[in-house]
Design a binder for these strands. Sequence first.
DNA 1: GGCTGGCTTCGAGTGCACTCGAAGTCGTAG
DNA 2: CTACGACTTCGAGTGCACTCGAAGCCAGCC
Lengths: 165, 165
Amino acid sequence: MTSTLEHPHPATRLRSVLESAAAEDGTLPPLDQALVRAMALPEDLPETLGIAEVAELTGITAHTLRYYERIGLVTVARDAAGRRTYDRAALGRVMFVTWLRLSGMPIATVTRYVELAQEGPHTSDARLDLLLEHRASVVSHLRDLQTALAVVDYKITTYGGSCGS
Amino acid sequence: MTSTLEHPHPATRLRSVLESAAAEDGTLPPLDQALVRAMALPEDLPETLGIAEVAELTGITAHTLRYYERIGLVTVARDAAGRRTYDRAALGRVMFVTWLRLSGMPIATVTRYVELAQEGPHTSDARLDLLLEHRASVVSHLRDLQTALAVVDYKITTYGGSCGS
DNA sequence: GGCTGGCTTCGAGTGCACTCGAAGTCGTAG
DNA sequence: CTACGACTTCGAGTGCACTCGAAGCCAGCC
């Protein structure tokens, strides 16, 4: 229950949640379906979680979770003693924000998104725009990464060849 | 010839070099072939280039090119007046380094790679290991980005749905 | 000859995203 | 009752990768 001192990469953690959701019925459903369930979160969790458990679950350190809250990136309820209590929705928000960060969205943009969401439903168009724009940049980054991978592969396969440096 | 004040993303610049190499015979050859030619560089370039032209060609600012040289990331010859003169090989090194950076390799690692290369051919095993290790991390990053994209797409397609935040 | 514009070096500054540490509080186990 | 460990806040520190600015040099044009 208490946090181990490991700090696995957030993507690894989040992916394992996705995969456990996906594996629930033995088959690997299309990613969309896994995602639907991942956003809804697995059922075998306690009603609320402490910061250490969320850290464990997401791969984000407790320090960083507090930092995220400080800058308004996520909001979290407290118990009587003032400790953070993450319910299912809060955990979902943390995971979504983490995916946004992993996809390369700057914190300032995530913050803007969250502020829009807090302003109410009438900002949904703006939020959608923001996501679409971000989507484009992710796709472009993906393309670049693939090309870079090809370059690295080229270098690997021609190793021992004549190409200097 | 002199640098415009635009600063296009390096990937855009480098990709355009790849693509012009690929388009040379009208067909789009497999990426590997384009890369072979890209590493060999297009023929219609002057024998040597100034820093502004390299900046233009790679999308890296002159400031950053100097910075890269300062920290030992690339080495560049000088003309009689002490100005940097990039020959074909130097440009190739800059582009390779840029692809490594774009693929997420930290500067310290690129530096290590370059140092190994400068030590001579007996380090080629170590360099290959380094590239293979890096390749794995690129692939993993690619997977994460794709998943993150799926999450963003999920959010986009379910917009107006019930999922909070 | 003098001006201009791009080049040079070097040190210092910036921006982002954490990351840490100190000092204090609280709830449970012994 | 006391000790312990996990939690709290807040400010300050870190690491990375640029990014900038000042001061000076030098080739080519008027």
